[in-house]
Design a binder for these strands. Structure first.
Lengths: 232, 232
DNA sequence: CGATTAATTGATACTTCTCAAATCCTGTGG
DNA sequence: CCACAGGATTTGAGAAGTATCAATTAATCG
């Protein structure tokens, strides 16, 4: 447990669900929250559990996933700095629908359930932000559903490489700023690990991407867009 | 355009997003809304458009779907009495992510965007209801993602027959109270029409379901649950 | 530097899709 | 009320796409 930065001064405030709240509200939240850390690989929330609060990620990367029948992970989405975890479950009053595991060492602010609801009640703006957020994600989920139902594995892989680039950005050398195993990529695409491996090496041969071990670089985004049939 | 029932007296109020609002609020909404009808097959909202208001369905059944690359429908979910359409787009301030088409003649109440926001501002309870609703649907979408990514077509079909039963119920003879073409079922399952046909006849041979034309009856729900690997 | 875990490759089996043809329905106009 | 046109459903056969299994090589971590 470390001393938390006060929310007013958090660099992720503008893009977060707390943007637009007045100073008093932010000051109050700052007092209600605590700061927690997770090591790479650590489970932050467990599918089926009842969360007692929400996390606002300050640093690090997290995967959200459900477990399928055979215990296979299906990655639903990724969470990074400024994003909330656990709010879905608390707001719908349902058990957690997706487990969260840290992909790298992570710092987050923890806001207990009761405080979270207090912020909602006291700040219509926050409530609206959350509505906007959940509705946006609902749209994203819909896209993912259509993609899984109608696209081939190759199309989906190309799509997800592009999503990874927008979500995590690139480092100085142009590689995606996220380290995933082939299995994790497969669990996002919804296919077998071996299929991902074959297709990645195919994309590499075609020159659309580069890859050194886990590091992947998108060379030709428009080629990937074409493969993924993304027209946006 | 017909005379709308006032919301206070609407039989769908308890299960809708407007439940728990006080009488004054409901009275106000009643004055802001208008009543509209759609014929079977009519498109209510078009993917990509900017909706100017939301519909609260009073009677009828509606499919929400996105169009995939080849123009193929992917049905995301169904909407029935008491449900809202269009709120996701308005709240996230994004174009409509899924088209809506009436599966049978439909009556709905239309609430213009500005009125909708006014209700939200004036009634924290409504805002919370919407949050709960969208978060619940987010969980459902996650389940659908996992199912599409990991289950076989047969498992998904069994799952969807069960979903249809919970969503639409059964008529006096035990048949699902919804009429869908094989193609529409396929568009929900995320497979080819012919595959659905083959699997439906397989389930019929096994005695788990009956079907006469479009009418489908679930004989053995627990067998379907077993096939679908649903453990709830 | 072992010992594990991850990544890769090949061969094979299986599921699901696609195309084509036949049959069945359903609503419509005579 | 009947015949018919057009769509929906069904069935079969073959092709394609993916998964699975096994064996090998590479990478990673104490």
């Amino acid at each position: 447990m470390e001393t938390p930065i006060r929310c007013q001064f958090c660099s992720h405030l503008p893009g977060s669900a707390f943007h637009g709240l007045n100073n008093d509200a932010l000051e109050e939240i700052s007092h209600m929250k605590t700061c927690v850390s997770f090591r790479k690989g650590q489970v932050i929330m467990h599918e089926g559990a009842r969360p007692q609060g929400v996390y606002c990620v300050h640093r690090g990367k997290i995967k959200l996933y459900t477990l399928g029948t055979e215990g296979k992970e299906q990655i639903i989405r990724f969470v990074t700095k400024g994003d909330l975890i656990g709010y879905r479950s608390i707001l719908s009053d349902e058990p957690i629908s997706a487990s969260a595991t840290a992909l790298e060492d992570t710092h987050a602010c923890y806001i207990p359930k009761s405080s979270f609801f207090k912020v909602i009640e006291d700040n219509p703006k926050f409530s609206l932000n959350l509505l906007q957020l959940s509705c946006h994600e609902l749209g994203e989920a819909g896209k993912m559903i259509t993609s899984l139902a109608q696209k081939s594995v190759k199309e989906r892989l190309a799509e997800i490489l592009l999503i990874l680039r927008t979500t995590f950005g690139e480092d100085e050398e142009g590689y995606l700023d996220i380290s995933l195993t082939r299995e994790e990529i497969a669990n996002m695409v919804g296919t077998a690990t071996e299929s991902v491996i074959r297709l990645i090496s195919e994309l590499r041969k075609d020159g659309f991407i580069d890859s050194k071990g886990k590091r992947i670089k998108v060379n030709d985004g428009s080629a990937l867009r074409e493969i993924a049939s993304v027209f946006e």
